[in-house]
Design a protein around this nucleic acid. Structure first.
Lengths: 207, 207
DNA sequence: GTCTATACACTGATAGAC
DNA sequence: GTCTATCAGTGTATAGAC
């Protein structure tokens, strides 16, 4: 039995889990070492056997913060190849965001990002890079392909990418805010699909 | 000379101004009474001659937080009357948001809202009400009118309102994030107008 | 109205016993 | 690895002199 080892690593993991919850609720400042220790069931000082200081805990959480299934989506289904599918491709992307919006773990991560967005420059940089640059560029490539394939009307693919992405972002935020106070999200249950429909109607070349 | 009176009220105003700046930078928690007092040039204890406690300062700022020119827009130009103008009406609305995005005072207010969004339920409620309900309903009315006038294709006006508003929200957030770290916003200088163009192309009935 | 002085809770962090 | 004990620093807030 490697009970000792297990206990050790599980304590470290417990600390990370507790910190994740507390930061999502109270922000980095609000998640005190005391609170984290209490949530885990150990003393404050014992925390420092696993992490050098509070910041190391935060840094450890940060690493997983932006590892998103959306990156995976663009890796598995590069626009250059799959964008020819047109509306189906857009729908797949939208469904990915929809799933993220209703997944409780990613909800927590998105919450932390938003809590720290205005106070932490590093998070802000990554946020900008992901949501206003990376995804937009991938989508822009997709729209470029669709134009070449004659599926959609021609125009600025970058603008189109932003126009397509922005409502998805907006709906995800809406979902998060409603869920935070345990409000109903039924009005948003099909909005992601409807968005794709609406968008496609606006850009598709009817043939 | 009512120098005393003036000094008094100006100190109170100074406290509010300093608090506004500090909260925008560090959040409610980060804006300590010590920092506020130091910024104003008085002792911490002197603060309590003007406000009962820290929360009263925050509450006082909150009142002005959501008084937005956008409310004024819908009051002065109710959709029922002005939406007949079609694209021009949408452009006017978009220009209002553009102006807000680049106005430094409203930038601060928007920052505070975002800083507190995840931690303060009251702010969250008002945020939801304004950006996901009130404006959407006004715009929804506008699109309903435009449909009746035969200016745009028929569809769900509520969905259309969200589709129109979401990118404006997204661009405003983008502007804020770039400006926070003194990055260039030239790429966003005409995006609000372009959005209206793009959107109108997608819904207008070409005649 | 502003000051000094002070109270008291909570923060992150460390030393040393077990 | 976890504990007790303890530290300095910062937080909000109050009492009383001027």
């Amino acid at each position: 039995m490697d009970r000792d080892k297990q206990t050790t690593s599980s304590t470290k993991q417990k600390i990370l889990d507790a910190a994740l919850d507390l930061i999502a609720s109270f922000g980095y400042k609000g998640a005190s070492v005391r609170k984290i220790a209490k949530a885990v069931g150990i003393r404050e000082s014992a925390i420092y056997n696993h992490f050098k200081n509070k910041e190391e805990i935060f840094a450890s959480i940060m690493q997983n913060l932006f590892v998103s299934p959306l990156d995976e989506f663009f890796t598995k289904k590069p626009p250059q190849i799959y964008a020819k599918r047109g509306k189906i491709y857009l729908l797949e992307f939208a469904m990915n965001i929809k799933i993220l919006s209703f997944d409780s773990r990613h909800e927590k991560l998105f919450r932390i990002i938003l809590v720290e967005l205005m106070q932490n420059e590093k998070i802000r940089q990554i946020f900008l890079q992901k949501f206003f640059d990376e995804y937009i560029k991938h989508l822009s490539n997709a729209f470029f392909v669709m134009m070449q394939e004659g599926l959609i009307r021609s125009g600025d693919p970058l603008l189109m990418a932003q126009e397509f992405f922005a409502p998805l972002f907006y709906f995800r935020l809406h979902t998060l805010l409603l869920r935070m106070d345990d409000k109903s999200t039924t009005s948003l249950s099909t909005i992601f699909e409807k968005h794709v429909e609406f968008f496609w109607e606006g850009v598709a070349i009817s043939s």
